[in-house]
Amino acid sequence: MLHDLLILYTLFFRMGAVTFGGGYAMLPILRREIIQNHKWMDEETIMDYYALSQGLPGIIAINVSVFIGYKQRKIPGAVAAALGMVSPCIIIISIIAFFLSSFQDNPYVQHALAGISVCVAALILDAVISMWKKGVKDLFGIVVCLAMLALNTFTDLSPILLVITCALLGIGAKMIQGKTGKEEKK
């Protein structure tokens, strides 16, 4: 059991150390490690964890790590995964805070951060494409996705309200689909 917790901690520590840009940027790494290398769960489960994590308070990456850790080893697994995810951040932020005034104006540091930003944008785009492929399955999904994108972009509506609205729309669509399916069988 301790060995399994150490594996969870180490895995999420490595992800936390290279996941600049938050939870969406970690999706490609998460897919490779959790689905392909360890075979702990399938892509649909990961996407469900992402969707649920977006509607919960807190940082998506930590929420997802808690769900995965919990699935593997219940509460001790959730704690190990969450600690693994936040440990690199605490270490890196502590080091940066200590030395910040010494190198914040260094052009090499500024260029490195600009390069990291480009990489993060690519990782987030990969996550968006993957989530689109898994989540948007029909015309209803396309319409809802585009409507929520427009609302998020052009209004000040809370993302929480958008997530709740989409959840209700999904439930409603499933109920209508269920009724239509029953009527067709008759």
Rank of each mutant, 00 (worst) to 15 (best):
T180E: 09
I34Q: 05
A121T: 12
G22K: 13
H38E: 07
V66H: 03
D4E: 15
R31Q: 12
I46Q: 06
L5W: 09
Q36K: 06
R32M: 04
E184D: 08
K74T: 11
I59R: 04
L123S: 01
L157F: 14
I92E: 14
A173G: 04
I124G: 03
I124H: 01
I176F: 09
M1Q: 10
L2T: 14
L30Q: 00
K179I: 05
A17D: 09
N106V: 07
D126L: 12
F67C: 10
K179R: 08
R32F: 01
I75R: 01
D105Q: 13
V79C: 08
V143N: 05
P107W: 14
L123Q: 07
M47N: 03
I176M: 15
T165C: 08
L113A: 09
N63E: 13
Q72E: 15
S65V: 00
L123M: 08
S158Y: 14
L83Y: 01
V109F: 15
M175L: 14
D156M: 11
F12I: 06
C145W: 04
G84E: 11
Y49K: 02
E44P: 09
K71V: 01
T153M: 03
I68C: 04
P159S: 13
R73I: 09
I92N: 09
L11H: 05
T165F: 11
L52F: 06
F98V: 12
K186S: 10
K182T: 02
L27D: 02
